[in-house]
Design a protein around this nucleic acid. Structure first.
Length: 275
DNA sequence: AACTTACCCTGAAAGC
DNA sequence: TGCTTTCAGGGTAAGT
């Protein structure tokens, strides 16, 4: 499932295909999921950025002579199974026609969403509007994180809210908590715990970005890069998807529970719930 | 305001 | 074998 590292990998891969191109047409048959896309027709893609798990395509008038170019933002969320492909497939939901070719958006489970909005107008996407700082940027500070964590509820649910930090999803929440040796249901982290978690999140996210994200093909998710290549970070998972396998630190079997309606993997020995 | 729950959606896997 | 049920989960809205 695409989290920050997978979305960032996607951004880097499609940037050379789309930057500077003019969108001729965005073709789909689900206006409820891909909103206002006709507003992007005829616009030039100036830049491709990312915020948390959202891709943001900055659009400007294709006509450089225009005195007041109307700038727009094309927001793409990959959902659970969304991704770009060079070839049309069985689950192609959107086709992006540019002056240089086509790119297809595949999304078997249809959780992905697109929308064209005025720049920064995220009222229709409350999670994006309330997004916390990027984990790999300076705005994500240990001091603020430690302070906020002191009053948090179940720490994994809190992380998944995207408010303390952006881009952390189910896989990287489990991995970060394993690395920091904190129980996923722990509330009100003390400063030592919160400090460990802060550094764990940065380490896990940086490692995953460097590896090109995680690819899971066995029914857990189907993230792939647009050219069909896999990321490699799944080989570095220590908790996620390792139910009943020995913890690589202590040998205790990894347990799986449900927390916040998400499968949650942790080591009951290394990650004890503290009262 | 913060937390909990249901829902969206479909393919793979498990169950029968 | 083939049908039915369960499971996976990011984000959103409604309910508490």
């Amino acid at each position: 499932m695409p989290e920050l590292p997978e979305v960032e990998t996607t951004r880097r891969k499609i940037e050379p295909l789309l930057k500077g191109r003019v969108i001729e047409r965005i073709e789909h048959d689900a206006p409820h999921k891909y909103r206002n896309t006709e507003a992007a027709h005829g616009k030039r893609i100036k830049a491709l950025t990312r915020r948390g798990k959202y891709l943001l395509l900055q659009l400007a008038s294709a006509d450089a002579e225009g005195d007041v170019p109307h700038e727009l933002e094309l927001i793409v969320h990959l959902g659970m199974t969304g991704g770009f492909r060079l070839e049309q497939g069985k689950h192609t939901r959107v086709t992006l026609h540019t002056d240089d070719g086509v790119l297809h958006f595949d999304d078997s489970r249809r959780f992905g969403k697109w929308a064209v909005v005025d720049p920064g107008e995220y009222a229709s996407m409350p999670t994006l509007a309330a997004m916390g700082p990027e984990p790999l940027e300076e705005a994500f500070t240990e001091a603020a994180f430690v302070k906020a964590a002191a009053t948090c509820g179940a720490v994994k649910v809190w992380l998944l809210s995207q408010k303390p930090v952006s881009g952390v999803g189910n896989i990287y929440a489990d991995e970060s908590l394993w690395l920091a040796r904190i129980h996923p249901a722990q509330t009100k982290l003390n400063p030592a715990e919160a400090g460990r978690l802060y550094h764990a999140i940065r380490e896990v996210m940086q490692g995953a970005v460097n590896a090109g994200g995680s690819s899971l093909g066995n029914g857990v998710g189907n993230y792939r890069q647009h050219d069909g290549l896999s990321g490699l970070f799944q080989h570095q998972h220590h908790a996620y998807g390792r139910e009943n396998q020995p913890c690589e630190r202590c040998g205790t079997e990894i347990r799986k529970i449900v927390l916040g309606q998400r499968g949650t993997h942790f080591c009951p020995q290394c990650q004890k719930l503290r009262e």
